[in-house]
């Protein structure tokens, strides 16, 4: 991996994709007729939202592999994607109200899309807090893997419950599902897609950076132990 696709190239591609996505968001996509400029928040908002849910699922996936194979880098991947996913989730919760205020006139509503996203954010917080507060560091990976498995099942229940509660839908419908009433210009779809790809690249770059930090940390710990044991003898 390292040789075939060096980190610097990864960073360069990510930055380029982000700049391209800015072009598509601000220049290529047409202005929405009723909401005006503000509507352009939509592109980053939707992409971060999808990334946040994807990241939680990937955290579960990494945890599952870790429980099965006890592969340390699977756990690093789980932790990294939780950290980056938490940031994406925070971005959704920031950009959402910034769009809702001028359009709906309110910052927040307990709607069927906002509510599960907020629950997801809480799940990320729980996972990350657990990882930094476990007393015996060797057990953190196992406990976190259990937590993320319980969490991913809970996300399914969250959607079920929220649907049953039948909140009135403030949120624009069928953002990813398409549909007749979504009324998106085809060029807007292109911009959504480009932004999502840029976000995927950003996510993969940051998770990879995190995995490198974790690997280095282990190496340092091992060498330290070696030094301490040799100086003690």
């Amino acid at each position: 991996m390292k040789k075939t696709f060096p980190q610097t190239v990864h960073l360069a591609v990510t930055l380029a994709a982000l700049l391209v996505s800015l072009y598509f968001i601000f220049l290529y996509a047409p202005q929405e007729s009723t909401m005006g400029e503000v509507q352009r928040i939509f592109y980053i908002h939707v992409s971060s939202g999808n990334m946040a849910f994807l990241a939680y699922f990937l955290t579960f996936f990494g945890s599952f592999v870790y429980l099965w194979k006890r592969n340390e880098s699977a756990d690093d991947f789980a932790y990294g994607s939780a950290e980056v996913g938490f940031i994406f989730c925070t971005c959704v919760l920031i950009t959402g109200p910034l769009w809702a205020k001028p359009v709906w006139g309110i910052w927040w509503t307990w709607d069927e899309r906002l509510t599960p996203t907020f629950f997801l954010w809480l799940l990320f917080v729980g996972y990350l807090m657990l990882r930094s507060y476990v007393i015996a560091p060797g057990r953190a990976a196992l406990l976190a893997a259990v937590v993320s498995t319980l969490g991913v099942v809970d996300v399914v229940f969250d959607f079920w419950v929220i649907r049953m509660k039948s909140y009135r839908g403030q949120h624009p419908a069928a953002v990813m599902g398409g549909g007749e009433n979504s009324g998106l210009d085809p060029r807007m779809w292109v911009a959504v897609f480009v932004t999502f790809v840029a976000c995927l690249l950003l996510f993969s770059y940051l998770v990879r950076q995190y995995m490198r930090v974790a690997a280095l940390r282990r190496q340092v710990a091992r060498l330290r132990q070696l030094r301490d044991s040799s100086s003690g003898a």
Binding site: L122, L123, G126, L130, Y133, D154, D158, V161
Partner: peptide, 13 residues
């Protein structure tokens, strides 16, 4: 503190 932070979000349903 850890228990409610972990448990409440999962127990929301």
């Amino acid at each position: 503190v850890m228990l409610p932070v972990l448990q409440f979000p999962v127990a929301i349903p």
